[in-house]
Design a protein around this nucleic acid. Structure first.
Length: 483
DNA sequence: CCCCCCCC
C-alpha cells in the first residue's frame, strides 16, 4: 500500500503538498477536555510501514467526520494540520500530531490493509493477565463480549463515587475474564455494546450460549480498562465460530462505533458579557488588521470550510449536501482597540467584503496578501461595527464577531436617525448615540424601531431574528479609518 | 450561519 505517497514519518509541520495513505488503527470515543469544555476525539492512523500518528478531531468536526474515518478502513489524507506534540507529552503521544478539520482532504481507498493492523498488535493471553495486575502497563487483549452486567456505582478508596460496568470477555480457549469499564466508558462503549448485545440476542445468542456452556471458566479477574486498551466486541455466532476454527484475531469493529457514542449535542449559546463592562466615553476606537488570508474555501450550502478546489462539486461532510459547490468566502480577523483594552473580532462573508472593499473571489485570486489599507482607500467616514460576543463552548472567554458594518450617513434620517438597528432582549432598551465613543467592553443596547430604514434593511432584519437569544450585541463606533 | 484554536 506504500507506493507514491509519503509515510507518516516524512510529514512534519513545514511539509507542503503531502499525502499519506493510512489505515484507521484506533478510534477513541469523543471526550470532553479536563480543563475546558472542548470536545475532542483521538484516532491512531497507521501507514504501510506500521508507523502511527495520533490524529485529533475537535468540536463539530467529530460528528462531521464520524462516517468518514472508519476504524480499519484505508484513506488518503492530506492537508491535516501537523504539529509537534509538546515536550510534556511527547513520550506518550509520539512526535507529531495531526489535527483533522474541514480543510483536511480525506479520500477513501478500497483496500484491505487489516494485515498491517494485526501485525502491529501484540495481544496478551487471558491466562497471562494476572502478571499485569496493578502494574499500570498498557496491554491489549482480544476477545468477544458475551455478556454485560448491570451498571453499578462504587466508591474508590478516596471516597469518590464512580460508575463502573463489567463485561464478560471470552477468548478462543473459552476462557473468560471480567473487564471493568470505568466512568466515561460506561456512558460510551458500554451503551453501544449493550444495544448491540440486545439486537443480536435473538438470532445468535443460542449458538454462542451453548458454546459457552461447554467450556470451563478457568480465569476470573478484574482488570481496569485504560484508554490504550484495545477491545473488540461482538456476539455474533459466526465470529465465535471463526475463533473456534483458529481464526485468532479479529480486526474489524462496528463501523459506526463513534456515531453511537456521546457526540456533542449542545447548541452554542449566546450570553451576556457583563464582565466586560467598563467605563463609558472612552475615546476613539481603532482597528488593526494583521496580514492573513482573507478568504477560505467554503460549502455554498452551509458555509462551512471545504477541502475541495474552487468550483468542484462534492458531498459536504457538515451539511451532508451531496452536490455542494466549493466557493471562496471572505473573512478577516481584526483587533479593535479602545483605551480600556482590545478585543479580537472576526468578520465573515458580507461584513468582511464590505470592510475589505473587495469580494471573496478577488481575495482568493490575490497571489500576494494585500494590506488592508491598500484595499480600503475609499473608506473615510465614520462607521459603526456591530459586534456580537459569543460564548465559546470550550473556554470561559468570548469570541467576537462583526455581524455588520454600518456607515451612519447611509442611514435614513428620521427620528431614529443614527440609532443602531439592533434589538436588545431582556434589558431596558437604550439608544446608542453615535457621537459617544463607547468602550468596546460595554455591552450596549440598541433600538429595534430604527430598522425602518432603507439601508440594508433585510439583512439587518434577518440578523435581528438570528440574534433573538443574544444579549450581547454591542456597537463599536469607528471614527474614520485608523488602521 | 460561516473562519481560527482546541486535548492529553
Amino acid at each position: 500500500m506504500g507506493d507514491k505517497f509519503q509515510l507518516i514519518g516524512e510529514v512534519s509541520p513545514g511539509t507542503a503538498g503531502w499525502t499519506v495513505k493510512v489505515v484507521v488503527a484506533e478510534k477513541f470515543s469523543p471526550r470532553v477536555a479536563q480543563r475546558s469544555l472542548t470536545k475532542y476525539q483521538n484516532l491512531i492512523l497507521m501507514d504501510s510501514e506500521g508507523s502511527t500518528v495520533q490524529a485529533t478531531l475537535y468540536g463539530q468536526n467529530i460528528t462531521a467526520f464520524q462516517d468518514e474515518l472508519i476504524l480499519g478502513k484505508t484513506y488518503l489524507i492530506s492537508n491535516a494540520l501537523v504539529k509537534e506534540t509538546s515536550a510534556e507529552y511527547k513520550a506518550k503521544s509520539g512526535e507529531m500530531q495531526w489535527t483533522i478539520s474541514g480543510r483536511t482532504r480525506i479520500r477513501r481507498v478500497e483496500e484491505n490493509n487489516s494485515n498491517i493492523l494485526i501485525s502491529t498488535y501484540s495481544f496478551t493471553d487471558f491466562e497471562d493477565l494476572p502478571k499485569y495486575m496493578d502494574s499500570n502497563v498498557d496491554i491489549s487483549v482480544v476477545g468477544i463480549i458475551i455478556d454485560i452486567k448491570p451498571r453499578r456505582i462504587i466508591q474508590t478508596r478516596f471516597g469518590k463515587e464512580c460508575q463502573v460496568q463489567d463485561l464478560v470477555l471470552i477468548n478462543k480457549m473459552f476462557d473468560t475474564v471480567l473487564l471493568t469499564m470505568w466512568e466515561a466508558f460506561v456512558d460510551n462503549e458500554c451503551k453501544y455494546i449493550s444495544q448491540n448485545l440486545k439486537k443480536k440476542a435473538c438470532s445468535d445468542w443460542k449458538v454462542s450460549q451453548s458454546n459457552v456452556i461447554q467450556c470451563s471458566f478457568l480465569v476470573d479477574g478484574e482488570f481496569e480498562l485504560v484508554e490504550e486498551f484495545k477491545c473488540w466486541g461482538h456476539t455474533n455466532s459466526e465470529i465465535i465460530d471463526n475463533i473456534v476454527s483458529e481464526k485468532h484475531y479479529l480486526t474489524f469493529t462496528p463501523s459506526k462505533l463513534s456515531s453511537k457514542l456521546s457526540v456533542p449535542t449542545d447548541e452554542k449559546d449566546f450570553t451576556e458579557i457583563k464582565e466586560h463592562s467598563r467605563a463609558e466615553n472612552c475615546g476613539r476606537v481603532s482597528v488593526k488588521v494583521l496580514n492573513q488570508t482573507y478568504w477560505y474555501m467554503s460549502c455554498n450550502n452551509c458555509n462551512k470550510i471545504s477541502s475541495e478546489n474552487y468550483g468542484d462539486i462534492y458531498p459536504c461532510v457538515f451539511c451532508k449536501c451531496i452536490d455542494a459547490k466549493a466557493i471562496p468566502r471572505a473573512k478577516v480577523y481584526m483587533q479593535l482597540t479602545d483605551p480600556t483594552g482590545y478585543i479580537n473580532a472576526t468578520a465573515i462573508g458580507n461584513p468582511a467584503e464590505y470592510f475589505l472593499q473587495s469580494n471573496a473571489e478577488i481575495l482568493m485570486k490575490q497571489t500576494l496578501i494585500p494590506s488592508v489599507e491598500s484595499m480600503r482607500l475609499s473608506m473615510d467616514e465614520d462607521e459603526i461595527f456591530y459586534v456580537k460576543a459569543i460564548a465559546r463552548e470550550s473556554s470561559p472567554d468570548y469570541k467576537f464577531e462583526i455581524l455588520f458594518i454600518v456607515n451612519p450617513s447611509q442611514i435614513e434620517g428620521d427620528k431614529n436617525k443614527g440609532k443602531a438597528p439592533v434589538e436588545h432582549i431582556g434589558e431596558p432598551i437604550r439608544l446608542l448615540e453615535l457621537t459617544t465613543k463607547r468602550s468596546l467592553f460595554h455591552s450596549d443596547t440598541d433600538d429595534a424601531q430604527s430598522s425602518k430604514k432603507k439601508f440594508d434593511k433585510s439583512r439587518i432584519e434577518s440578523t435581528k431574528k438570528k440574534s433573538m437569544h443574544s444579549k450581547t450585541l454591542f456597537a463599536v463606533h469607528m471614527e474614520k479609518r485608523d488602521v
